[in-house]
Structures are given as structure tokens and as C-alpha cells.
Design a protein around this nucleic acid. Structure first.
Lengths: 257, 257
DNA sequence: TCAAAAGTGTTCGTCCTACACCCATGA
DNA sequence: TCATGGGTGTAGGACGAACACTTTTGA
């Protein structure tokens, strides 16, 4: 089973490799500059961005397909990845703007093409460490980069809806999932962790209460090292105690605010 | 678009009506005799039960297909219905026991049949009022009835997993969704409402605290009528104040324990 | 008159919230 | 030396958990 190597081949013979009528789209979240970021692709010859996505090989589990797609766009694997909704509207993958792309390809029978059949998409969201990601375009796109959640470009298909729903799910699961663990680098400061929570929840939190609560969970380890960040007191570095973190998760501890 | 009227026709021509490779399964919950119940179907000529399910018409939204399937099996519509997970394992709809059913049908090319292609299933759960349901078999089944959640029969495919996951989702969403409103008849007593919560959560709750909390939400209306249920004090009937209930939901009030 | 379940209020402890001062650092 | 942001503790209030006695009813 070889991956298609050109768009044309992909359009014309992808149906041999992939389950038709089903796709996967991933909202990949990162955290950088105190902002929540989403990784987006810009389709070739089309004025609009979309979520990284793809199709499922005939004998591949859907969850593995999602991991594969994520790996292909970011270069990282083994990350936190979670289904959040399946989008089943019949017209959801109709997109008039695709005409330009297709016109440029010289493909026959475009109306009939497997790619444009009605497709149900399984939405996943991923939490990744911003600095480890190497954004990589796919066959259909010519740009791949991070966008600030508050300044998203025009999105194709129903992907705007998807991002909204992914974010909502992320907020709801904030208390039960290792959000910090996945979005931050190994070493981080308490203010950074707080900013992450504030950004996701989109509201300010009290510094002292935040610190108290986080430390009381017993899953953080304070390092001796401090981060030098300007003309003021230097904050300590912390890191997660993976073992205690996992125990806490299992026990269903609430990380909530 | 006519519905298939015989199994044979369904097996042989269903692909013309339905999107292939995608199905829907519904965990339909009811509450009766202080027990949480699930509606199950027994397939013809096969020793095993399964969740009510079906396929999506070519131009039908997935959520509407789920409503339709639910309506066909229970006779009721406009009920609380919610996606909980999409099952995408490649072998999930392989089921050796189906051989008996197929043998009895005299169908050609069964291996190649659209029905046995790899299918990804969107799982929904529904909350319905037990007494309003008229369990109705489908083409493939010869029995349709309620089963106690604690005494489930052998289930086909991955439907056991599905029920488990549906229940887990129901528990998590107990605080944010109109569980009581959908599972109970219009009039009910406080002990009945409490039993419902206890059954779903699978743990006892304190009577006094439960009542206090429920009443404090301001979404219940106590009726003058009492229910006569044995040699002891008669409990009051309550009903939900729909308007306040909806307001409370919107405001994101926690019904939680 | 007895058994079985329903109605009802108070106390205690915990957890969340609000809040202010001092300290370290680099410009 | 000053502006900026980080480190830290305490008091009050809200909410949830624990808990017992009285009342009603049918047998």
C-alpha cells in the first residue's frame, strides 16, 4: 500500500487505499506566547484554510489513522489525542472554492470523484508541545502553520464549527485530562501554567489560589532552577511528576477551576 | 426511496439506499422498577442480542438518521439523543455468529455483501420515558425488549463495549443534561427521582441532602397529590417546571452529586 | 400496634474566594 | 531607584456530608 505521491494520483486512485465516505479531521492545539494556537493548512489554489485531515486505510483503526495524520503534519507521535465529535451533515464537505484547485489539476469526472462524495468526518483534538512540532504540508496544501485561536483565518467546509466544538470539549475535559502535561514543555513556570489555564478557559484566575490548588494536587515538582525573565523576581521552574500525575488521573482527581 | 421490505432485499440492495461503511447504533435507556434498562434486539437465527441500529440514507444528516432509527424501534420521537463515541476498529463488525442468519437466507456472494464491509459506527445514547416506548422489531430481528443494565445477555459485535461507554458518558453528563426530565414520567415522586440518580451513578445518596439539593435548583414543582404506595407515609408528586428547567440548563447549572 | 418508608433541619468540615505585602531583578 | 511581576498566608463564606426523630399508612 503506497501513499499517493501526486495530487492527481491522489484524486484519481485514492479510493483504492482509503475507506470512502469517512474522513478524519484534527484540531491540533499548541501553546505559545501565552496564546492558544491551532495548526492549519492552506489548500493549494484555494482561498481558505482547513484543519489537518485525511482518510482511513482499509484495514486501519480510526484512532491509528488519526495518530498517523497527526504524525504526518507535526512530526510527533504518542501525543494526547481524543475524539470529540463526528460530523454527519450531508452537505458538510461541499465547498465551492475547491473549483479553483480542481481546475488547475486537469482531472476528469470531478463531480463523480470519490473525494467529493458525501463524507462523514470524525473530529479529534490533540494537545501537543508547540516547540516540538515541525509543521509539514500535505499533498493538497502549500502552507502549514500555527494560528492564534483569537485570530483565525477564513476556514473551509465546516472546520470553523469543528474548532469551536473541539475547544468546548477541551474546556469541559480540562479537569480530567492531562492538559498541562501535554501542552507545556518539560520545564515550565507557575505563571506559564496559569496562563495556559487562563487562555483555555478565557478568564483570569487568581494567582495565589491557582498556585495553592496546583501544588495541593501533589503532581508538580519544584526545581531549584529559576527562569530569568525580566526586571523582576525570577519564577521557579516546575515539572510534572509523571507517576503521580497518572495516579491522580486514574483516581479521577479534579484539576478544575 | 422505498424502505426494503424483506431481509433478502435489504441484504441485496440496501447499498442503493444507504451510505456504505457507516452505521449508527443507539443505546436507548429507560427507567422502570427502579432499574436502568436498555432496549435490545435479538437477531433472527442468531444467538445474541444487539443495540438498535441502522444506516444513513444518502442525503440524510447523521443526527436525523439516529432520530429515525430510534423512532422506528420505540415509536417515539423528539427525545433526548446524543452522540457519545464513534467506533472505528476495522474488525468491529465481524461476527462469526451471523453465519446462521445468512445461511438461512440463501443469498449469493455474502462475503462481498455491502453489509459486511468494514463499517464505522456512530454511537448515540437516548433517554426515553419507559412507559411510552412500544418496542418494535426491525427486519433483522425477531425480538425487541428491555433488559436490566445489570443483567445483560450476550451481545454481538462490540455492543457490550458500546453500552459501557454510553453509560459512562451518561454519568459524566448527568450534571449538565436533563436526565430526570427525559427518563421519568410527567409526575414522579422524590424517592423515584432519587432512585434514578442512584441507579445511574450506582451508589446510594442521602435522602435529605438529595431532596434539599433538588429543590434548591428551583426546577421542580410540588403537586398537592400524593402517591399511595404501601403501608407508610405517601410521598408527594412532583413535576418539572419546563421553563425553569431549560433556563437552568442554559445557565450551566450543576445537577451533580 | 407495628413495620416500613417519607418528611424535615442542624452541625461540621472542607474547599473556594477574595485579598495585600514583600522581594528579586534588570533597565 | 524604580517599575514589573513573582512568592506567599489568612479570613470569611458557600456548599456538601453526616446524621435522628417524627409522621403516615396499611396490614
Amino acid at each position: 500500500m503506497n501513499a499517493p505521491t501526486s495530487i492527481k494520483e491522489f484524486f484519481e486512485s485514492g479510493y483504492r487505499q482509503f475507506l470512502p465516505h469517512v474522513s478524519i479531521d484534527c484540531a491540533i492545539f499548541g501553546f505559545h506566547d501565552n496564546q492558544l494556537k491551532v495548526l492549519l493548512l492552506k489548500m493549494k489554489n484555494v482561498a481558505g484554510w482547513c484543519l489537518p485531515g485525511g482518510f482511513i486505510h482499509w484495514t486501519e483503526p480510526a484512532n491509528e489513522a488519526a495518530q498517523r495524520i497527526l504524525q504526518e503534519r507535526t512530526g510527533i507521535s504518542q501525543v494526547f489525542l481524543q475524539q470529540f465529535y463526528t460530523f454527519g451533515e450531508p452537505e458538510r464537505n461541499k465547498e465551492p472554492n475547491l473549483k479553483d484547485l480542481i481546475d488547475s489539476l486537469n482531472i476528469e469526472h470531478t463531480e463523480d470523484n470519490w473525494l467529493f462524495h458525501r463524507t462523514i468526518s470524525i473530529g479529534y483534538y490533540a494537545l501537543v508541545e508547540f516547540s516540538k512540532v515541525i509543521p509539514t504540508v500535505d499533498l493538497l496544501s502549500d502552507e502549514c502553520c500555527w494560528w492564534d485561536m483569537h485570530e483565525l483565518p477564513k476556514l473551509l467546509f465546516d472546520h470553523s464549527l469543528m474548532i469551536g466544538q473541539a475547544l468546548q470539549t477541551l474546556r469541559m475535559q480540562l479537569n480530567f485530562h492531562p492538559v498541562g502535561y501535554n501542552l507545556l514543555p518539560e520545564k515550565f513556570t507557575m505563571p506559564e501554567l496559569q496562563k495556559l489555564y487562563e487562555t483555555i478557559l478565557d478568564r483570569p484566575l487568581d494567582r495565589r489560589n491557582f498556585q495553592k490548588k496546583m501544588l495541593s494536587l501533589g503532581i508538580l515538582e519544584r526545581l531549584e532552577e529559576r527562569k530569568s525573565v525580566g526586571p523582576h523576581k525570577s519564577p521557579y521552574y516546575y515539572r510534572f511528576d509523571k507517576q503521580k500525575y497518572d495516579q491522580a488521573l486514574q483516581a479521577g482527581i479534579s484539576f478544575g477551576f
